[in-house]
């Protein structure tokens, strides 16, 4: 194992897109032969995935296909029972220290935002940097304001989450995750709980983030977003990765019949 706890900064600007990266650079996320069961139910079957630094991956598929469960395994919100998951050179095992190490480097955005309602927006953003990274309050607040600026809601910093709209809450959630300066961002259906007019403001923030070279794994039904920013689109069905292709190929020339059927259904309207 390498040393994942070295002083790290924001993802280096030099790594722009995976096409430019040499094939021998080790992946930042490596999933090998991963299986998961809920009781007897086999939710994830033999998943294999390598994600390079700076790569943007969109995972789609019908509901119940295990796509959320899959990305929740990557920061161990769900436990896998077989196979290997290595994130930033740290393997996810039962060891709580390894899990905490990985979670510090992986930011997550949830469908239902999950902001802490008893804390203000600014406090939400500062909580983890202050208590986990031990950054002094002043510095943490400055960083938080920077990210709130980036998601375009610095003026809401002293409000409580309950006073914000859904779209604003989700942007705060993105800022909160970014305040930990993660190497990887996971998005679990970030726009599914939003009203249509709020989806765009969240997607805009995500597109901006993708442009900055962040490694992103995104479960979403927003095919427009997939077309614009994804380096690869992964289609899952019944717990398996059915197809994996760059967006252009994926949308224009899907190989698997299950993919074709899915695309036909969602692109009909």
């Amino acid at each position: 194992m390498g040393n994942p706890m070295t002083e790290q900064s924001q993802t280096p600007e030099t790594v722009s897109s995976p096409q430019g990266v040499a094939g021998d650079s080790s992946p930042i996320i490596k999933v090998e032969g991963m299986h998961k069961w809920y009781g007897d139910f086999h939710v994830l079957r033999d998943l294999n995935l390598d994600v390079k630094q700076g790569e943007r991956i969109v995972i789609c598929g019908p509901s119940g296909s295990g796509k959320s469960t899959f990305i929740r395994c990557i920061n161990r919100l769900e436990e896998h029972q077989q196979g290997k998951i290595i994130v930033d050179n740290v393997e996810l095992t039962d060891d709580i220290r390894q899990i905490d190490t990985v979670r510090r480097e992986v930011g997550m955005v949830f469908q239902h935002f999950n902001l802490f309602p008893h804390l203000t927006v600014l406090e939400n953003c500062c909580l983890s940097p202050m208590w986990v990274r031990k950054i002094p309050r002043k510095e943490a607040e400055a960083t938080a304001m920077e990210y709130l600026e980036r998601v375009k809601i610095p003026d809401q910093a002293h409000k409580f989450p309950g006073q914000l709209s859904g779209g604003q809450q989700q942007r705060v959630a993105i800022a909160r995750a970014l305040c930990m300066k993660p190497k990887i961002m996971l998005f679990d259906e970030p726009t599914s709980a939003l009203d249509p007019e709020m989806i765009k403001e969240v997607l805009d923030v995500m597109i901006e983030l993708a442009g900055s070279g962040m490694t992103m794994l995104c479960v979403t039904h927003e095919m427009g977003f997939a077309k614009t920013v994804a380096d690869r689109v992964i289609f899952m069905d019944a717990g398996e990765i059915v197809e994996e292709a760059p967006p252009h190929e994926f949308f224009t020339n899907p190989q698997e019949p299950r993919t074709q059927k899915f695309l036909k259904q969602i692109l009909q309207h």
């Binding site: 992986v106 909580l127 983890s128 986990v132 995750a177």
Partner: peptide, 9 residues
């Protein structure tokens, strides 16, 4: 889950 994902022990 949000607290876990932020790495709070």
């Amino acid at each position: 889950e949000a607290a876990d994902a932020l790495g709070l022990g």
